[in-house]
Design a protein around this nucleic acid. Structure first.
Length: 349
DNA sequence: CAACCTTTTCCTGCTT
DNA sequence: CAAGCAGGAAAAGGTT
């Protein structure tokens, strides 16, 4: 089980990203999450070490006073600055106010050492977000993924949404994924661009992810696991025979089974994913965590084409509308064409 | 390089 | 009984 509860992280993201837009987004939250319930993404208390990092993903112009404090606090720590010499009142400003300060004003307020440090840091943050407009790198990456994903869908964008059963018609065999993310064979519902507040009106067509109560409608209700039809057929992700084991069943049959756990990673030389060209590092860069991926989709509702939506931002409840599509995107991001919603949901839990 | 963390995969049991 | 879901366990691989 992940030590970092997805719900808390997403809620923190939610709060950070939206609290200037949705002022009532931070009610009293229960301090304890009773259990990890993927149906309901509720709000446990956000740990400070998580929330304190969120200002990094927002343009300084959008920082709240709290973000500014966190930012200053981080620099006080990193520079071993004696915080006792710093007046809290000096730090009481929001992002826009902070951005208006020039170098000399910073030095005047925070002193020559910390002031210079803060000024330099602020310039870096500002230039970073000036270049990237609204989005952080991870967000851009996810958005690019979304764009590519949607570009690869050959479905006409209909003006009406078919309710519910489009996925019914898809057999597991038809669900074969191809290299380069060719999802033309993926019989999803046609995607209609949705605005921030313009969601599907008929909830029955959606894969319920959220909601409080429900019991188990964790999406995918009409769709079998595509793994059987795709994962092993993909040359890149097929498992070598050596990784398979023969397991005797009670009936004495010899059955070919995959061992538990993740199969060894194969060479990425033949990867044709859009990421192959951009990611050369030995280690995956930051911003590739599942919770970040989910967050990025959620905070860009105008670009997620109805893949997911906030059901109740205040409660941190969101819903998968195209659960398999989201899983496919995640799989592409992780260069894993056998990713399914079942696995994605397990990772989330 | 080891410890830790996250993700992926398989499996079992419960609920509907 | 079948399907869907939750969660345990194991393993890979990334991060620190």
């Amino acid at each position: 089980m992940s030590s970092m509860c997805l719900s808390s992280v997403l809620t923190c993201a939610n709060l950070t990203m939206y609290h200037t837009v949705v002022p009532d987004v931070l009610p009293q939250q229960p301090s304890v999450l009773p259990s990890i319930n993927t149906q309901q993404i509720s709000n446990p208390g956000c740990s400070s070490n998580i929330s304190s990092q969120w200002y990094r993903q927002i343009s300084p112009h959008c920082w709240t006073a709290e973000n500014v404090l966190e930012w200053i606090s981080d620099h006080v720590e990193s520079t071993k600055f004696d915080a006792s010499t710093l007046s809290l009142a000096c730090c009481a400003m929001d992002g826009p106010a902070l951005c208006q300060m020039n170098r000399d004003q910073m030095i005047g307020v925070f002193g020559p050492q910390l002031g210079l440090h803060l000024h330099q840091s602020l310039q870096e943050h500002k230039s970073k977000y000036d270049l990237q407009s609204l989005s952080g790198p991870e967000l851009n990456e996810t958005c690019q993924l979304l764009d590519n994903f949607l570009d690869n869908l050959n479905f006409p964008l209909l003006s009406t949404i078919r309710i519910g059963h489009a996925e019914d018609a898809v057999s597991k065999r038809e669900f074969g994924y191809k290299d380069d993310y060719d999802l033309a064979s993926l019989a999803m519902e046609p995607m209609t661009p949705l605005g921030d507040t313009e969601y599907l009106s008929d909830n029955q067509s959606e894969s319920e992810y959220s909601s409080s109560s429900n019991s188990g409608m964790f999406g995918f209700s009409n769709l079998g696991s595509p793994e059987s039809g795709s994962g092993e057929s993909d040359p890149e992700f097929s498992y070598p025979l050596i990784s398979k084991v023969h397991i005797k069943t009670e009936k004495g049959e010899s059955q070919l089974k995959r061992p538990r756990g993740r199969p060894p990673k194969l060479s990425r030389e033949h990867s044709s994913s859009i990421y192959s060209s951009s990611k050369k590092n030995k280690h995956a860069p930051r911003g590739t965590h599942l919770w970040e991926f989910i967050r990025d989709i959620l905070i860009h509702p105008e670009r997620n084409q109805g893949l997911m939506k906030w059901e109740d931002r205040r409660e941190g409840v969101f819903k998968f509308l195209k659960s398999e599509a989201v899983a496919q995107m995640w799989g592409q991001k992780k260069k894993n064409s056998s990713m399914t919603y079942e696995k994605l949901s397990r990772a989330m839990r």
